[in-house]
Nucleic acid binder design. Structure first.
Lengths: 235, 235
DNA sequence: CTGAAAGCGCTTACAG
DNA sequence: CTGAAAGCGCTTACAG
């Protein structure tokens, strides 16, 4: 590089006019093709028998210039964003926060990033979130649905966005899901109280109509029935 | 569109060979230019005096076909991702979760999406997260830093990524931040106890060296001093 | 009023 | 072993 006093943007060939370090700007200055740089930076140097010298040159300059590959360009070209959309009713709920933490950690391992959306227990926001995530070309969506409507989810799934439900699911709807063993848990809890001799056992419901609530109520009822305790309503 | 029995991908001119609805595929079938479609879909129809008929045609087909603009392509072209990176030590902590919720809600209003990263209170993860977010061309980063090291943050900021600290900050480091009034709060809390006649007041510290902890300890000390209560250590 | 064409920064089939 | 060129899906300066 020249050292006489041209203005900075003239001498610094490693950057384009927008002051970005890109594969092309490096290629121009280094005198190698963008193809080569791309290959080296993707660890394909050996495979394409690029000389050790070039590999060394490319990696060190990329490092020195603090080069950051443009994932957006990459995503457009590859038609794959390496991104997962996560739609949660409310991240403030520790249960959902724990899900988010676990999902983000696992995603990171595979170099995936998480787009976080809170549906705020509002079906309209949930629908908008899905549209938004699809616009971002996410590779898939993990969603803890509000829980009472599923057509939009089926539609999204059919349109080609891989979708997996978490926490809540829809009976009779063919969508993959992962959820807790609510029925068994409720059954066990109720049985536990019964074993201690209790007869009048109340059951607080969650959101009526959602799968976890259904399962839990069913477990509760099942336990009462098994022990021949009549089901009564407090009102 | 033809109705005789060609295979689906042949008749459906609204989609490209990859089965995606894009501006170009619609343009081809509708017989208008991609320019026009882009304008209409961006609400610039009136401005460019595009005929009502065309506007109507474009919007309804886009709607019918469930067209989703490709934000990745848009981002590449505009060099603006409409995306904000959020780095939090641990989303499972309700305090951070509440921050995340508020940030996401506000971002959504402005059609921004949030990339969530948990640094897991690990400086290495924090650094990696920043690099990752820069690769995603985020328009800015909001970070609740681990809190003991700041060079990498200054570097990121200097390299052109807008950065704002939340919760914790670094004294003497010129980085914008938003944090709680820890000093005042601690001072008030301590004074409150003193007002009730207490003399032996303990102070549990958080993470030593972080700004919130420093501020709180200082508030505590200040209150003791003001009331001439000697500062003692329990050991 | 409307559109052809360039270009954002990558990857990869293709040719040498 | 190496590179020129096409193309991912958009937007927009430019020309008519």
């Amino acid at each position: 590089m020249t050292t006489h006093s041209l203005p900075f943007y003239k001498t610094d060939h490693f950057r384009n006019e927008k002051n970005n370090v890109t594969i092309q700007s490096m290629a121009k200055t280094l005198g190698v093709s963008v193809t080569t740089i791309s290959r080296v930076l993707n660890g394909l140097g050996e495979q394409f028998r690029i000389s050790k010298k070039t590999i060394e040159l490319v990696t060190t300059t990329a490092d020195k210039l603090n080069y950051r590959p443009n994932n957006i360009a990459k995503g457009l070209r590859l038609k794959k964003s390496s991104t997962i959309g996560l739609i949660l009713p409310d991240i403030t709920n520790t249960w959902f926060a724990q899900l988010a933490l676990g999902i983000e950690k696992e995603a990171r391992k595979h170099h995936y990033n998480i787009f976080l959306c809170n549906s705020n227990d509002d079906i309209k926001v949930e629908k908008k979130s899905i549209a938004l995530l699809q616009s971002w070309m996410v590779d898939g969506i993990i969603i803890a649905p509000i829980g009472l409507e599923s057509e939009h989810l089926q539609k999204a799934s059919k349109s080609g966005t891989p979708l997996v439900l978490i926490d809540r699911f829809f009976e009779g709807v063919n969508l993959p899901y992962i959820s807790s063993n609510d029925f068994e848990g409720s059954l066990e809890a109720t049985q536990y109280l019964i074993n201690y001799g209790h007869k009048k056992i109340a059951c607080f419901q969650g959101i009526v109509g959602t799968s976890p609530n259904n399962q839990r109520v069913n477990g509760y009822k099942q336990a009462l029935k098994k022990n021949k305790i009549p089901l009564t309503r407090p009102w």
